[in-house]
Amino acid sequence: MSKKIGDVILDLQNISLRFGGVKALTDISFDVREHEIRAIIGPNGAGKSSMLNVINGVYHPQEGVIVFRGQERKRMEPHHAATQGIARTFQNIALFKGMSVLDNIMTGRITRMKANFLEHALWLGRARREELEHRKKVEEIIDFLEIQHIRRTPVGRLPYGLQKRVELGRALAAEPSMLLLDEPMAGMNVEEKQDMCRFILDVNDQFGATIVLIEHDMGVVMDISDRVVVLDYGKKIGDGLPDEVKNNEDVITAYLGASH
């Protein structure tokens, strides 16, 4: 399978993040190219999730610069990230448990809704047209993720693996150009992992989305990512192609060595 990996669209330069005296990230720099699958790996507490939170503006680093699509920022804000096409999923699923799968995915369309509150409340012309259009998009995602059978099911009643899939669906609903996935396969069985891998590859391939992914399953990471960055105690200790990273001495001692 051949795909075009484009220019750098996200460049993180010398990012440092502290919570009081705790250094979560220290002087980390790496970049993400368009259309690639970029994995962030590292032991627990290495700062992987913090890194994603810096990218989409939940945490603000004390030092460093974030360059996204040529725009240089000291700090990203969540709404900037959202409107610029960055969507994410969370390590601990963050869906509306009482709402149906359909409605949950629909919430992912909010940044794209233009009609105002009154129009929506009265189901007026523009709101109606818009809603139909959004519904169509949502249905396409439901079809893509093969979750038609649970369209109307409240999310809280679904098994974990399906909830993860719904969360991916909501992220996709925003039609993101960059997708941040925080451990999309944690707690899944082999079959569910395979399904998820296939969806991630398809998202990357068919929607052309760039993917930044945190994952613990080394098999998965080495299989699907184009490049891997390795963090340990908030520092970057490796960066490169999966094979390079696999053979990097520091990485082996810090991480792979411990788990293999």
Binding site: K136, E140, I142, D143, Q148
Partner: peptide, 9 residues
């Protein structure tokens, strides 16, 4: 003659 449910419709 034939119906099929596609994209929820």
């Amino acid at each position: 003659a034939i119906r099929e449910k596609d994209l929820g419709i």
